[in-house]
Design a binder for these strands. Sequence first.
DNA 1: GTCGGTTGCTGATACGTATTACCATCTCTG
DNA 2: CAGAGATGGTAATACGTATCAGCAACCGAC
Lengths: 351, 351
Amino acid sequence: MVPPTPRRVTQRDIARLAGVSQATVSLVLNNRADADVRIAPETRDRVLRTIAETGYAADPVARRLAARFNRIIGVFTYEPAFPSGSRDFFHPFLLGIEEYAERAGCDLLLFTSAPVVDGRRRIFHQDNRLRLADGCILLGREIDAAELHRLNRDGFPYVAVGRRDDAGGPVPYVGADYAAAVGELVGLALTRGHRRLAYLNTELTAESSADRRRGFVAAATAAESARHLTTVGRDAEAILDDLLAEGTTVAFVEDFATAVALALATRRRGLSVPGDLSILTLGDPTVPVPTDLAFTGFRIPREEMGRQSVEVLASVIDGSAVGVQQRLLPCELVEGDTLGTPDRRSTAAER
Amino acid sequence: MVPPTPRRVTQRDIARLAGVSQATVSLVLNNRADADVRIAPETRDRVLRTIAETGYAADPVARRLAARFNRIIGVFTYEPAFPSGSRDFFHPFLLGIEEYAERAGCDLLLFTSAPVVDGRRRIFHQDNRLRLADGCILLGREIDAAELHRLNRDGFPYVAVGRRDDAGGPVPYVGADYAAAVGELVGLALTRGHRRLAYLNTELTAESSADRRRGFVAAATAAESARHLTTVGRDAEAILDDLLAEGTTVAFVEDFATAVALALATRRRGLSVPGDLSILTLGDPTVPVPTDLAFTGFRIPREEMGRQSVEVLASVIDGSAVGVQQRLLPCELVEGDTLGTPDRRSTAAER
DNA sequence: GTCGGTTGCTGATACGTATTACCATCTCTG
DNA sequence: CAGAGATGGTAATACGTATCAGCAACCGAC
């Protein structure tokens, strides 16, 4: 292993050239002007001139070792950060993260080296370089609670993108207020006259999923009937049978692809969306699904979540944040074409 | 500035717990088994057990300071790395870079903090953190020669994505062989009977542009006429006039958007592509342009360029590379619908 | 029992920067 | 002109790891 650097300019070199001590160079560089640190203007100038001449730049590694602060923000993703799917789910988050990092003058360290163990990436592994960063941002649908636990224990500054349950203490996060958004959608459906609602969920473990269900349950108390169906292992036809049998007029669908499939099945049966069945989606697609329908639902403020996660992390790192930072950002409702009124069809027939 | 870390486990702690010296801990950790470094198996086990118990992880900063090697690859882009345009030009490069970095166990450091000066980002600036990385990858249509110069002078390992002219010495790069690809296209056009060719370029400075032109010039010697036109400041109509006046039958167009505009203009005039004019593109679009035409041209192996740039950089860093690394990857020809035969129209009329 | 060789480990030091305690020197005051 | 106070700088040390010269202890051979 040959040292890659032939020899680089250090503060010691500057000091020698300027006829001062290394400490003086450091003091000049850091613009120290405390009560007990004084540098004569001409000395300062001489040092600065020498620095300019040599093109010296401080070694960030040594600086970090000594000062324990580096203006580097780690980004940990549980999936590749640059995925193939162009309309990818992570992309907007990263966009916001990069934007705010640039504004804050921070570099981003992507932990691409994190190995996959048991089907998912791990933060903590042999020889992890987490601590090179001043703090880190965690991206992923599900984040291992044990790893959050360890981050908490180590006192390493971090922020999760998306709300997280406690893991050995409260978890700092910047999330989307799914509960409120779903609640609003339910309210909208009730206003339009819907009384028989159904909630279709896929996964069960993720917080983002639980929050949506919670929002549904809380807002649907005024409904005649509010059922929960799982879509796991069932095809759209079977689900549709189920919905129609109970006289459901509006379905709240967690997974975008399921909503598309359900709409297709409805049409295949000669029924219309939203004439016979209203279908609401609960967030943007996570995988690209082609559809000609403009679904009614809400938009997750992903870019803004990225931005604010960096903002929060920065405040945690520099100590200006008090307590555990937890933010929920509002989701914007999207009025599409898939929410109708339950009686529209009969009204049309009466005409 | 409160120290963010309360207190972390160090080799010294391990050493104390295991009853050995810090040096021994380091030796065990690095699996040293040289002739003059010997650790008794039981000592080694004891140290390893202590490490496991405490959950110790080496501080990458200190490691880097001592060993000058960190398995971190810097990525410098002259534009935001995560751009808004979904079909972005940089994206495939980053995809390849990430993929190979993951395989090589390297992390990626995005220099988002690089400030914009005079309309472009700068690698070297006050307080740059370049040296945190073991080496870096440079992405950008045009890269400042002065900055390359300085990288060369400093002996900092780097690789440019895309061929680069010398800048105070040869520049290591992984590029696409534009000259060969354009040459092949010219050959194809000649085979189809074209004799009057035109080359339409936009910018002049970038190496990628010069390579294409060079390929054109070298291969077009067999043609009756091979002209160069600039598209800068001219609209598609004027260019088309020019082409038709000279009896040009095939246009090699550097910029994808220009090709689209030219095809539209041709059609507006009641002429057909490729019946009256063949239009060839010289690489993928850099900005998304909607078109229903499948252009004949070639594909830049961008993902592979990303992968290999990391591969090359890694070999430069670990010293296994001899000399300056320069690679040109072949571009894949794409047979679309925009290359015809110059006499097809008259043949059709004779029938 | 002395001498060369081997084994297993440690002490010292380097890496480059930040910080603090402290030391000269000069200036002012009574 | 002694003492206090201000001024301008330096030496020393810390940060955590890697490396290497070298030391002690033991072994075997003559």
